[in-house]
Nucleic acid binder design. Structure first.
Length: 537
DNA sequence: AATAGTCGGATTTTTAGG
DNA sequence: CCTAAAAATCCGACTATT
């Protein structure tokens, strides 16, 4: 029953599966000479230390480059932006980068259109819907008209009439608890959730009532798997102030499915995605696989990236099977192979040859910098495990983007179940200054990864690493709060071990051994709320 | 009524490194 | 030849969706 919001009557024609770019893309991209969207976004991190380019020698310069490269811009673009704006004003550079990346012609029309529309100020989700409806080849003006029309049609009162004005009405004042009534309304833009997407037009304007205490500082953001056993999300909602989960599939943000539920008290107006928009199909994300991709494998999206990948013998078995037939295996063989392919999330890397994704491909799809989890004694198996448990950075950043303007002087973050630091990376890529980050993570390899990232990105703030969430006392919280002046954001996804459908052994629900740590999340949110409310009075 | 897909766990076998 | 680590191989249920 908690999935009642899936039942949006006519979700059919807006269903994501009928993005019909399949055929278009294949033809087009084949026709285009070697220009790889993926390579341009990845090359950057590789040799960032090699300061051989003659002109740039100062330490400040290279630090700046590193900083912005860490946010996901290509090294080339960063250098250009710094050259144009000087190295002293980081905000100007940031603006220039956003402009440059938005103007840069992308290889695929859809991405380009999306980027342009977003840059014009249209909400990301509406832009996607428009492209979905009008087709990827539609002219920008046509798409813009579509969006305006649909906004009118829905009688949207939102401040989007003048798309160029990104920052007009703020939906509420964050510093002050607005109404003394204690009632609080948050207007989500209409297409929130439904069908595990955020772009279903069947949904209506939703007003959520917040208890007064969560309408105030601090913001919190909770994440877990969407397809939990019955009742789990209802329980989670009950603890987290009766806020309805927002179900989002990360396939709208990258080339892989990732169905997750999010409960938060963030405003939802004027969200904006990270730029550049990542490749949204397998074919765009992995151009080299097109050469080997058989026509009968019609996938455009990968399935969820799990913590384990297919062992070698599986792919070898398929290869031998396929080699028995010619170019076109019989239908029943195709179907059997497809079942295995989908189950193990394989891609084509040679003639009849399949392979699981590499760890660095996981990183790319999930929005992390290349080699984020590499090195420092981290094994391959551990990388898969940590990455499989991680946030999809673009998705989370999209939600957190509303915070950017609210904390121009930096933000204090309490990050629970940090894992490999998806929340930290998301905030950083949004260009937010991280003042104080308390990061709670049980696994040593993950803490090392976060620490390493923190140092590589030249963070000027303060990172405190804590091991066990159960040992975080309210006393300790008080001390941090006093020292930092309070937390602005509490963020984390509690363990899904006993909730995930993949677990055949101990899917015991929210009360399971690991998943019950959700209550620790709740405990800490409560404690921080309590302490900071007292301090404010 | 049938199908598809899922932030996994326990155990055994193989490999890597002395 | 030994040990530790990594890879391979077992293992269904639950539910939204069609």
């Amino acid at each position: 029953m908690q999935f009642h919001n899936y039942v949006g009557s006519e979700g059919d024609d807006s269903s994501p599966s009928d993005y019909d770019w399949n055929t278009d893309d294949e033809l087009e991209v084949f026709g285009i000479p070697p220009s790889d969207p993926t390579i341009s976004s990845q090359e950057s991190c590789e040799d960032s230390v090699g300061e051989s380019s003659a002109s740039c020698s100062s330490a400040k310069h290279s630090k700046l480059i590193h900083l912005f490269v860490g946010m996901g811009f290509s090294r080339e673009t960063v250098i250009k932006a710094i050259d144009e704006n000087g190295r002293d004003n980081e905000e100007d550079i940031m603006e220039a980068l956003l402009t440059l990346t938005a103007e840069k012609p992308l290889t695929v029309e859809k991405d380009e259109a999306l980027s342009v529309l977003v840059n014009m100020g249209y909400p990301f989700e509406e832009a996607l819907t428009a492209i979905d409806k009008c087709g990827p080849k539609a002219h920008i003006s046509e798409l813009a008209d579509f969006i305006s029309a649909s906004q009118l049609e829905k009688g949207l009162h939102s401040p989007q009439e003048s798309p160029n004005n990104k920052h007009d009405a703020s939906d509420y004042t964050h510093e002050k608890p607005c109404q003394p009534s204690g009632e609080y309304y948050l207007h989500t833009s209409k297409k929130v959730k439904l069908g595990l997407g955020i772009f279903n037009e069947a949904s209506q304007v939703i007003s959520r009532k917040f208890p007064r205490e969560v309408a105030n500082k601090p913001y919190f953001y909770f994440e877990n798997v969407a397809l939990a056993p019955k009742g789990v999300w209802k329980t989670i909602s009950r603890f987290l102030y009766e806020i309805e989960p927002e179900y989002v599939d990360s396939k709208y943000f990258c080339a892989a499915t990732r169905k997750r539920g999010y409960i938060h008290n963030l405003p939802t107006h004027n969200r904006s995605p990270l730029l550049p928009i990542p490749p949204l199909t397998i074919q765009e994300a992995f151009p080299t696989t097109k050469k080997w991709w058989p026509s009968w494998d019609r996938r455009t999206k990968l399935n969820c990236l799990l913590t384990r990948v297919a062992p070698g013998p599986v792919t070898e078995r398929i290869r031998k099977l396929l080699e028995k037939f010619g170019d076109e295996p019989p239908l029943h063989v195709q179907e059997n192979v497809l079942v295995e392919i989908r189950k193990w999330n394989l891609v084509w890397v040679g003639k009849n040859k399949l392979a699981p994704l590499e760890p660095d491909e996981y990183e790319m799809l999930l929005g992390f910098p290349r080699d984020h989890t590499r090195g420092g004694g981290v094994t391959r198996t551990e990388r898969y495990k940590s990455l499989g448990n991680a946030f999809q950075v673009n998705t989370v950043a999209y939600h957190l983007s509303v915070l950017k303007g609210r904390f121009p002087n930096g933000i204090n973050v309490l990050s629970l179940f940090s894992g490999i630091g998806g929340a930290e990376v998301a905030l950083h890529r949004l260009g937010m200054m991280l003042k104080n980050v308390v990061s709670v993570e049980i696994a040593e390899v993950n803490r090392n990864i976060i620490r390493s990232w923190w140092e590589q990105t030249n963070q000027r703030g303060n990172l405190i690493e804590v091991e066990d969430v159960q040992k975080v006392s309210s006393n300790e919280l008080s001390q941090w709060i006093t020292k930092f002046g309070g937390f602005d954001l509490i963020i984390g996804g509690s363990p899904c071990n006993n909730i995930s459908g993949s677990n055949r052994v101990s899917r015991h629900g929210l009360e399971g051994e690991q998943s019950s740590l959700f209550y620790e999340y709740f405990r800490i949110v409560e404690a921080v709320m309590e302490i900071q409310r007292d301090e404010l009075l």
